[in-house]
Design a protein around this nucleic acid. Structure first.
Lengths: 229, 229
DNA sequence: TCGATACTTCGATACTAACCGAAATAAAGT
DNA sequence: ACTTTATTTCGGTTAGTATCGAAGTATCGA
């Protein structure tokens, strides 16, 4: 008999409405807490906890504990890919037409990394910051170095205010399209804010795409030592 | 409020070991009868009938009755794609016997991914086509170049007929054994058809694995400039 | 130190679904 | 017409699991 891989276990993890709702919520790449996901799935925290532990054992998601908050994310882009391929063969919901389903997909993608930089620019930025030693990625919890604190401070980012936010300070956010981590979390959001404030980028109206200004090209080159193509 | 797609029903259809075994058996694109599938899944015909009817209602497979035989097949390549993507995130199956190890090796070397080539052969083919500049992968929508149009035309692929189909022309399909994309979509299917027609490959016993013939070795070397292992 | 919040574990309930035996239906061969 | 083979339907048993209330652990803020 031929060696048949067993997809039934993984499929079983996806076959519960509560679990699939949580997984689809995680599709945007943003790590989310247990209660956040429980609300999405409209279930109690106890039930969510059970489901999330099952998903972790099945290696579909991974957990990172940050104080009393437990952040969950999809383990890798392959999981996102599998979920998206299941969405494709699932019948579109009754109320909406196929065209509207496409629009929903676009919306979901637009929500991706909605408050920090992704794409080529985000990755260049992340690489530059790591290369210059402002962030230490040697262990799993990324940490801002002393050099980094000085640099970001000079750049106009207020650390004290940032730390006070509940949100996880830095997290590597997987960009499904580029399959490379860039910088999300509070630091990512703060960087985006500051870069916008400096007029380095232009947000195109209601679009995910951003345009780097002439000022920005100069800025990225001078402060982060990479050139924008 | 964004409409959340519901993948749990489809995933539920894939979450039963018997059903997933039958679906994986159908991955090669060959229509199979109910009893044939029952044997694959090691269940009684009654139980298989129940499962198959559920899969039909869920639009994962379609049935065609020919006399007393009921032939089942996957409804479309998207279903095959979803199954492959689940194989990708499933833990590799334990190899029990030597025979199963051989089978596994054969699948990794060369197999069909529903209607196009996958495994190392599929990837070699894809790499060759990209290297020789026949398709342009610089932006997200892969495109056949002018050089490519000429090449594929000379190779015996009718573009006009292909384009008329509604199906996506080139689909980068992720390979579970190599974790690298190969060429799916209408072009991938046409390539497999033509390569089969030319007698470059032989379908093996398990139906999903393929063997490259001597003619094929020569052909891949002359037309695509890679050698088959 | 104390209370509030986030999360997990335990226990009990209720629901779903896979399974096979038995029997019905349908088509093929003789 | 009769037998064999392919498939489906029905009925009853069994096993697995999603769910929540209650209680326990861990962390944060005051």
């Amino acid at each position: 008999m031929p060696s048949t891989p067993d997809i039934s276990h993984v499929a079983g993890l996806l076959s519960d409405p509560s679990r699939s709702a949580m997984l689809i919520s995680l599709l945007d790449g943003r790590p989310q807490t247990a209660t956040e996901l429980a609300q999405r799935a409209k279930i109690t925290p106890q039930t969510a906890s059970l489901h999330l532990s099952k998903l972790v054992s099945g290696h579909l998601i991974s957990k990172e504990v940050q104080g009393k908050y437990h952040y969950f994310r999809l383990t890798d882009p392959n999981v996102a890919h599998a979920i998206e391929s299941l969405i494709e063969i699932s019948p579109p919901s009754e109320i909406y037409s196929l065209r509207e389903a496409d629009e929903d997909n676009a919306l979901r993608k637009a929500r991706t990394c909605y408050d920090h930089l992704a794409g080529r620019l985000g990755i260049n930025l992340a690489e530059s910051i790591v290369r210059k030693g402002y962030i230490d990625i040697s262990n799993e919890n990324y940490r801002v170095t002393d050099d980094g604190k000085k640099f970001f401070g000079d750049f106009g980012i207020d650390f004290v205010k940032l730390k006070r936010r509940r949100r996880k300070f830095i997290h590597p956010c997987l960009d499904w399209s580029e399959r490379t981590p860039h910088i999300g979390g509070a630091l990512g959001a703060a960087l985006l804010d500051r870069i916008t404030e400096l007029g380095w980028i232009d947000k195109k109206a209601s679009q995910r795409a951003v345009r780097v200004t002439e000022l920005g090209k100069e800025g990225f080159h001078n402060h982060f030592e990479f050139s924008v193509d």
